Amino acid sequence: MGWNSANRIFDPVARALINTGADDNTKRKVLGDLIGELQEGDWDTGDESLEDFLDDPAIVAAFHDRNVHTQDRSCCRRTVLAEAQDRITEALAAKFADGATEADMYAVYHLADGEERTRAVTAQEAGQVAFEAIRDLIGGTAP
């Protein structure tokens, strides 16, 4: 079989898993095993199939597990962006959403007459939480 033909094996299986609502772990395992077997048969156009499924992180991960990337590495950028978005969302939710303490959700300031007021979190404070999540993701340090 010509191994561009392997795309005709892989693509329908991947679409079937998507259409049946398979969970991400199942897609990653089943497709990872399939990719490995097709590679054993000298599949040399896996990157073309990968391009058709860039919107599915589990399928991208299955390809990455088998060291298959798009020629321009756009698959890697999407993966990093998706992870950054997840980290920021988690950090903001932990700091400001349900389950956060009242002290985290509001800032208290004191008026000259001794009264206390509260204010909602500022965009700058939320931005700092997002910045810290990104910094933790890439392993950097604050400027």
Rank of each mutant, 00 (worst) to 15 (best):
L137M: 13
G46S: 06
K29F: 14
E48V: 13
E102W: 10
V108Y: 06
P57D: 07
S49E: 00
V129S: 07
Y106T: 03
V80R: 13
A133Y: 01
T101Y: 02
F63H: 08
T141Y: 04
D65C: 12
E90N: 12
G41T: 02
L81G: 05
D23A: 12
A6T: 02
L54A: 02
D24S: 14
T122N: 12
A61L: 03
Q128W: 05
L34T: 02
V108C: 01
A82N: 10
T26H: 09
G32L: 06
G2E: 11
D33T: 09
G139I: 01
L92T: 04
D33G: 03
D11G: 08
G127P: 09
Q39R: 11
H64D: 02
A82C: 08
R73K: 13
R28L: 07
G41N: 11
V108S: 07
L81W: 03
Y109N: 08
A22F: 05
A82G: 13
P143N: 10
D104P: 00
E48K: 12
A103Y: 12
E90F: 07
A6W: 10
A6R: 03
N7G: 12
R117N: 12
L31R: 01
R78G: 08
G46P: 05
V30G: 03
A120C: 14
L38M: 01
D104C: 03
H69K: 11
P143R: 06
K95Q: 11
H69T: 01
E40F: 00
T45A: 13
N25A: 15
A61S: 13
K27I: 00
D42V: 08
A97T: 05
K27G: 03
D65V: 05
A14I: 00
S74A: 12
L34S: 03
I134W: 02
F96A: 05
A58D: 00
L38K: 02
K29Y: 01
A94K: 13
G41L: 04
E90I: 01
A22M: 08
D23C: 06
V13F: 09
A97C: 09
L50I: 06
L54T: 00
I138C: 10
T118G: 06
N4G: 14
Q124E: 15
D65M: 07
A93E: 11
F63T: 00
K27A: 05
K29M: 13
A82L: 10
I134D: 02
H64L: 00
G127W: 10
D47M: 10
D72L: 07
D113F: 07
D72F: 09
N25Q: 15
A123T: 11
A107K: 08
A62K: 04
V30T: 12
V68G: 10
N4W: 11
A97E: 03
R66P: 01
V121I: 15
E48G: 10
D44A: 11
A84T: 08
F131N: 13
K27T: 07
I9T: 09
W43A: 09
R117G: 06
E115C: 06
D113S: 05
F53Y: 13
E83G: 08
I138M: 07
A133G: 04
N67K: 15
N19R: 15
E51R: 09
V68I: 15
A16E: 08
R77Y: 08
T79N: 10
R8G: 13
S74C: 14
G41A: 14
T118P: 03
R8C: 05
A58H: 00
A120F: 15
R66F: 02
F10T: 04
M105F: 08
T26R: 14
R119E: 13
S49D: 03
G2S: 06
F131I: 07
